[in-house]
Amino acid sequence: MSAIGELRTLRRDGRGGLTADQKQALAKERRRDSKAAAVFLAPWLLGLVGITIGPMIASLYLAFTDYNLLQDPNFTGLENIQRMLGDERLGRSLVATLTYVVVSVPIQLAVALGLALLLDRGIRGLALYRSVLYLPSLLGASVAIAVLWRLVFGGEGLVNAFLGLFGIQGPAWVAEPDTALGTLIVLHVWTFGAPMVIFLAGLRQIPRQYYDAASTDGANKWQQLRKITLPLLSPIIFFNLVLGLIGSFQSFTQAFIVSNGSGGPADSTLFFSLYLYQEGFAGFRMGYASALAWLLLIIIGAFTALNFWASKYWVFYDD
């Protein structure tokens, strides 16, 4: 093992029993790291301070005001929070959003992972499949989807035509309050291209030798998947899970275009971001919208923190 590798081991193993030389070397490396970090993080820090933080703090301030966009915000203390407590639409939108997140994120990830594993096996026409499977993600936010979705999931749509073959009379999926959210979940799962691509990239990072060695030891495919692929892919699975949660909690565009911005029918697809947008831009209550946004941040933050905490038990890092 190299000297630096030794140093690293020391650092990991704890501070006990270091010689003065070792301590000095460690401190030196620390300083070197800090300096380098300042350089490598410079663009990000500049962006954080110069671009990101300002608007965030502004919105935090607005969360405690009554702000109608056209006149000065009025500081109202906790009034917006009080309003949240009695806000029925907020309740409905939380239910819709949570249902959507809890159902669609795991399904989408499972589909993406399954197909990525299948596509990673080097079968013929791989590039073609990969591209075709990614296509819906290219279209996901297009205006065309709104039209198409009604043609597919409408009362006279393709799905019902298909069900009709078996004598089943399906409902107008997009139009019924009980099923509309389901079609959005389908839409979300259907755009599994992004996590799939990330999984594929991740699979390519797993050293080939591990599999060769396992084959030699007589491990079958299933064992290889469980003992090699999934552990080594776990950081990427973790990434997709965290970002999938953050993204779908904020999901806006698809509900917006499919419901024409209403969150209908009867608020059944009123995603949190959509509600907040309606409050801010249609109702000119940007103060309340900002308060809602920070509530969302707290919810997402809690879910993310939970994820990071749980990751200790299942995510495997090589470093």
Binding site: S34, A37, W44, L48, S59, F281, A293, L296, G301
Partner: peptide
Amino acid sequence: LQFRAKTVAFAAMLLTIMLPVHVL
């Protein structure tokens, strides 16, 4: 790299993408 407040910085980075664009 090892540097001070790394966890905080990382958390801050993730926080910045948790606010919806419409209020920003």
